[in-house]
């Protein structure tokens, strides 16, 4: 099968791959590039575990074709900490026990990051709405919501 060239920026690094036409971004990231932080939970756009940020917007990488990402800027949870220092969201998820099995966590953090990027001081309802596309089957939603609110508070304190 003829391969399609794809080039994008992933967590600040240039990436180029040849993929089969129709390859999902999730597959390209995990199996070609080796960034396994986005998870495949359903491969049909319902669980949110594969969430990544493409050009500032939250996207389901399992429903995004890699070939549509040419020239895009993509962020994943594996690229969130800088020089070993955890991002405030990662810190908050740790401190507030917002992880259980951990499978939904990278997707949750991506969804939360997009929310805080657009809405630095969200209400609880806004957090719930922003996470509504991400399933935590361990049903630890309350600590996750608290983690996002905690991260928002620590961001605003740092900014002040």
């Amino acid at each position: 099968m003829a391969k399609v060239p794809v080039q994008f920026t992933l967590n600040g690094s240039d990436k180029a791959e040849f993929v089969d036409s129709g390859t999902t971004l999730l597959h390209a990231l995990r199996d070609k590039i080796g960034d396994t932080s986005p998870k495949g939970g359903c491969h049909q756009g319902t669980c949110g575990a594969c969430s990544v940020i493409i050009d500032g917007e939250l996207r389901l990488s399992c429903l995004t074709l890699a070939e549509t990402c040419n020239g895009a800027t993509i962020s994943t949870t594996s690229g969130l900490s800088e020089s070993g220092v955890l991002h405030p969201l990662q810190r908050a998820f740790l401190d507030t026990f917002a992880t259980q099995c951990g499978f939904c966590t990278p997707g949750m953090i991506m969804a939360a990051k997009v929310l805080l990027d657009h809405t630095p001081n969200p209400s609880r309802d806004e957090v719930v709405e922003a996470l509504s596309g991400n399933i935590c089957r361990c049903t630890g939603y309350e600590p996750i919501i608290q983690a996002v609110l905690t991260a928002a508070r620590s961001n605003s304190q740092n900014a002040a």
């Binding site: 995990r30 199996d31 080796g34 960034d35 396994t36 932080s37 986005p38 998870k39 495949g40 994943t76 949870t77 594996s78 969130l80 900490s81 955890l86 969201l89 990662q90 998820f93 740790l94 026990f97 992880t99 951990g102 499978f103 966590t105 990278p106 953090i109």
Partner: peptide, 16 residues
């Protein structure tokens, strides 16, 4: 938890 929040936890499907 540190592995979970950084995406470094290796689930079985992360092996290739």
């Amino acid at each position: 938890s540190p592995g979970h929040v950084t995406g470094k936890t290796a689930f079985f499907a992360d092996r290739n």
